[in-house]
Design a protein around this nucleic acid. Structure first.
Length: 463
RNA sequence: UCCACGGUAGCUCAAUGGUGGAGCAUCCGGCUGUUAACCGGAGGGUUGGAGGUUCGAGUCCUCUCCGUGGAGCCA
């Protein structure tokens, strides 16, 4: 008797043919007649189900026949082939032990549910086909990312979740405090006295690990972070979450082109790895979620990403003759409609747009020789929009300090960041990849709430 | 935060201002190879909430809550 998992059965079924096997799992459906029936069993190890055939020879036949969906059972029986049937093989049960009963009000039915409804049962949705596929792909993609960087000698750095600096100065942050909100300590001028808070100063949840990653890049040369980040923006869109995961590589002795080369390799690597290691899940997405998925992903893997400057992008948009809601002018940030037009209509593949005007980008981006633009690049992909944002960092102490002062930022908050430029500073570059956006691109899922297990969005932190 | 649309049975959706329905699910029965099984029967409703107009409101009006899509912000 083999105690075996369903994935193993599908991968090596010859080994178990006509053998006694023992499998535990949850019932997806039961179909029964007077004296026999069929169970679709899913044991969580594989996207597909295992068909169990049971008949009245079992002393608990009547009870098995009436088990509600999602009851858990252990089955012992013989694995036999089923030529010509939908499934390649099935188990003829000699014994079925009921591990745990479900209930007739189990909310997941044997039919399509809307994703909106499934979000309200986030504790049960991983048992559905779509979410079973999404979260297995998510896991495999995370592994692919680690594998990609580790194979290239990158050091994985754990940057802090609780931070004392407000990093890029971009985005509302979530405050971290242990102060009694009903009885706040006040200074003489009436403002809150954070010296009495847990850390003796104001602290927040991180919005990016980039500044800390730069610290480690200037010690280890090639590093990456992969962890949760938090934005308290009141963003209500299918592409934003308040808590999301980000990958942020940072490389010393590298410039903007090195960053774009690395990012392009990484995206192709992740796609190839997932296609190879999740064939059943990807097949499902291509059939039921987005039937252009394979075509799109293969196109990305097999093509060179386009690279254009911001200035060229503006020209292309102006020449397009398209009537945009937001007029195109050099100096304006690209709107969603512009980004989509560039990547979906003009190039029909991923596009790096680089060298943006300095006034629409962050303080740490390296000023180009023209004095107007910075060495930044965003990767735009069809369907999702921006999935990567990155830049070469300003390594010149004076230029960086000028930028900080110009923007009215507090110089003293960045003392350690500035010191990196003082002690052996060198050119370096890095980027941030939104992990959930990558998953959306990989699966064709159109809402970020459906690619993160327990989504946090404005007014929603149930579960 | 702004704009648009929506909220009716457990789920997905119907219902001209005039008796709130269907499919699926659930429960009961039938069926010897099903696979979104099939066939027959039954139960199931404060129409998101509050107020208003009307002889009469699921339907019209006001407010509010929630959801979805688009925009802004970004990853």
């Amino acid at each position: 008797m083999f105690e075996v998992e369903v994935k193993e059965l599908y991968r090596n079924h010859e080994k178990y043919l006509n053998q006694e096997v023992k499998v535990s799992g949850w019932i997806r459906t039961v179909r029964s007649s007077k004296s026999f029936g069929f169970i679709e069993l899913n044991d969580g190890t594989f996207f597909k189900n295992l068909q169990i055939v049971f008949d009245e020879k079992l002393d608990n036949f009547k009870e098995i026949e009436k088990l509600p969906i999602s009851s858990s059972i252990t089955v012992e029986g013989k694995l036999v082939e089923t030529p010509g049937a939908k499934q390649p093989f099935e188990v003829h049960a000699d014994k079925i032990v009921i591990e745990g009963y479900s209930h007739s009000d189990y909310p997941l039915q044997k039919k399509k549910h809307s994703f909106e409804y499934l979000r309200t049962i986030a504790h049960l949705r991983p048992r559905s086909n779509t979410f079973s596929a999404v979260f297995r792909v998510r896991s495999v993609a995370a592994y692919a990312i680690h594998k990609f960087f580790q194979e290239r000698g990158f050091v994985y750095v754990h940057t802090p979740i609780i931070t004392g600096s407000d990093c890029e100065g971009a985005g509302q942050m979530f405050r971290v405090t242990t102060l009694d909100l009903n009885n706040l300590p006040r200074k003489e001028d009436g403002s809150i006295d954070f010296s009495e808070d847990f850390f003796g100063r104001e602290t927040n949840l991180t919005v990016s690990g980039q500044l800390e990653a730069e610290v480690y890049a200037l010690a280890f040369k090639k590093v990456y972070t992969f962890g949760p980040t938090f934005r308290a923006e009141n963003s209500n869109t299918p592409r934003h979450a308040s808590e999301f995961w980000m990958i942020e590589p940072e490389i010393a002795f590298a410039d903007l082109n090195d960053y774009m080369d690395l990012a392009e390799d990484m995206v192709k690597y992740i796609i190839s790895y997932v296609l190879e290691n999740c064939p059943e899940e990807m097949e499902f997405f291509n059939n039921f979620i987005d039937n252009t998925l394979f075509e799109r992903l293969n196109n990305v893997v097999n093509s060179d990403f386009a690279r254009i400057t911001y200035t060229e992008a503006i020209d292309l948009l102006k020449k397009s003759g398209e009537n945009f809601q937001f007029p195109v002018e050099w100096g304006c940030d690209l709107q969603t409609e512009h980004e989509r037009y560039i990547t979906e209509k003009i190039f029909k593949k991923p596009v790096f747009v680089n060298n943006y005007p300095k006034d629409i980008k962050a303080f740490y981006m390296r000023l180009n020789d023209d004095g107007k633009t910075v060495a930044a690049a965003d990767l735009l992909v069809p369907g999702v929009g921006e999935i990567i944002g990155g830049s070469q960092r300003e390594e010149r102490y004076d230029v960086l300090l000028n930028r900080i002062r110009e923007l009215g930022m507090k110089e003293e908050d960045y003392w350690w960041y500035l010191e990196l430029r003082k002690y052996g500073g060198t050119k370096h570059a890095g980027y941030g990849l939104g992990f959930e956006r990558m998953i959306m691109y990989l699966t064709g899922m159109s809402n970020i709430r459906d690619v993160i297990p327990f989504p946090r969005t404005p007014r929603n932190a149930e579960f």
